[in-house]
Design a protein around this nucleic acid. Structure first.
Ligand SMILES: [Zn+2]
Ligand SMILES: [Zn+2]
Ligand SMILES: [Zn+2]
Ligand SMILES: [Zn+2]
Lengths: 132, 132
DNA sequence: CATGTAAATGTTATATTATTACATAGCGTT
DNA sequence: AACGCTATGTAATAATATAACATTTACATG
């Protein structure tokens, strides 16, 4: 079990919003949505995002500059993330596949580099978009 | 063998610059460096970058918003990229490992999604930085 | 060689994403 | 109370990327 983090006010507002969203949210869309709750500036959003990422409650989809709630009941593995992204409808989901994560976590080559973290993004067409 | 692409003037200027750089280059740093050659606007840079990415001569390091020349003599596999990134010195190199690429290209899960492309970024400490 | 068309270029303005700098507030420990 | 730490507030600005529109170049093919 991992330590339960208590979220601060801004962190909670922003996490709840992202968590309810069916799709990854962009920072300024988050900002727009929380302005009625008193969060007025980009920096307030980015600070909360940074913290939420650090504790594994959300992840950043790098290729989209967007943020998604962790779909693994708060990623034990926030340092080992994998996503599938539909290039047609932009649906994103977190891949939870122990073989894959084991394979990548143990990956090493002859570069002498010690890999402590990875992020993998798969692209393709989701079931729905394929059948169109 | 893949079709030999002829680069246009701007594409060539920008590719040569990136190719000579020992580290990934950012778009506005590229812009700054090619202004003496007559490329004056961001869009000219981004258009060349888009094309170079499309034909596999360069890749974008998503987590860094930076661009690197393909280190696999023009990636047959520009749709299957893997990089190692040192979080201390920011050295980036392209991983060319046929087992890894085979594993990932063939990866599938029960989501019904057909993966046609992936990008993987490993993070850690390079040999040099580890021994400091 | 004229004509069509796709690709590339040039230019200005603007949108989007993210950080710097500085000031203040809350909270637990000593 | 004094300290250290985390979080917050606010303004300004930096960094990354695209939209819109006009023009030019390459080159196939009739
Ligand atoms: Zn997760
Ligand atoms: Zn889809
Ligand atoms: Zn490559
Ligand atoms: Zn290093």
């Amino acid at each position: 079990m991992q330590k339960q983090q208590t979220l601060s006010r801004n962190q909670k507002i922003i996490f709840d919003l992202i968590d309810k969203s069916p799709e990854p949210m962009k920072a300024y869309s988050i900002l727009f949505n929380v302005q009625k709750k008193g969060i007025k500036a980009p920096l307030q959003v980015y600070r909360a995002l940074d913290k939420l990422i650090e504790i594994g409650k959300i992840h950043k989809i790098e290729s989209r500059n967007a943020f998604i709630a962790c779909q693994n009941s708060s990623c034990q593995i926030s340092k080992a993330t994998a996503f599938s992204i539909c290039e047609s409808c932009e649906n994103v989901s977190e891949i939870s596949n122990s073989k894959l994560s084991k394979y990548l976590s143990n990956f090493s080559d002859d570069s002498g580099m010690k890999y402590s973290k990875y992020n993998l993004e798969f692209f393709g067409l989701c079931k729905k978009c394929k059948s169109k």
